[in-house]
């Protein structure tokens, strides 16, 4: 059960973002910019960074949600499966492998990032902005994972929830829905 009362129909992060909307706004805007804004990394590549960090932090809600979003963007689920077990085996570019290694280091501690891992990324063609964004996305998901788990938010009752959520993340991104989220409330069965 969550540590504070949250809307029951909004599991994971959404209930928290609705609970305090003034703090949600810069978090949403930062995420929209980093994961959906102009970048030389694809949206799928950026979702892979979110996935590998959430997986490292053992945050079930975030890992499942961003795995689903990455799978939808990629049209397959081999890549998300591979990065969780062995980055080297994943069907991604050498540059992306090096950036995922950096993301895993950031997940542990900022201080774990080595000049060697940075050099490997640069040798594989990563630009400074790509390295910057990788580190910031990885850091941002350390925030999300701690927020979601530190408040003991609920997991969705059904895994269908993640498909719907991934669809929303692909089409609407990380902006608050203009109509809010009350339409997601279950209609109580009529006797």
């Amino acid at each position: 059960m969550p540590h504070i009362p949250l809307e029951e129909h909004l599991p994971g992060i959404t209930g928290l973002l609705e609970y305090r909307q003034d703090s949600a706004q810069p978090i949403r805007k930062l995420t929209q910019l980093l994961l959906r804004g102009p970048s030389t990394l694809t949206e799928a590549e950026r979702e892979l960074i979110a996935t590998i960090v959430s997986y490292g932090n053992e945050c079930t809600f975030c890992t499942t949600a961003h795995t689903a979003a990455a799978d939808k963007l990629l049209g397959e689920s081999n890549t998300t499966r591979a990065i969780k077990t062995d980055i080297g085996s994943a069907p991604v570019s050498e540059k992306m492998k090096a950036l995922l290694v950096i993301a895993r280091h950031v997940q542990q501690s900022g201080k774990s990032v080595t000049t060697q891992s940075i050099q490997q990324a640069k040798d594989a063609g990563a630009t400074d902005v790509e390295i910057h964004d990788t580190v910031l996305i990885a850091s941002l998901f350390c925030l999300y994972n701690r927020y979601v788990d530190g408040m003991a938010t609920r997991l969705p009752e059904s895994t269908d929830y993640y498909n719907t959520l991934a669809e929303r993340l692909v089409t609407n991104g990380y902006r608050r829905l203009p109509q809010g989220y009350s339409h997601l409330k279950k209609i109580s069965p009529t006797p």
């Binding site: 950096i102 900022g110 580190v135």
Partner: peptide
């Protein structure tokens, strides 16, 4: 936990 990683992760 984010700010610290951002600041140290980029040295």
């Amino acid at each position: 936990s984010m700010f610290n990683r951002y600041v140290d992760g980029l040295a």
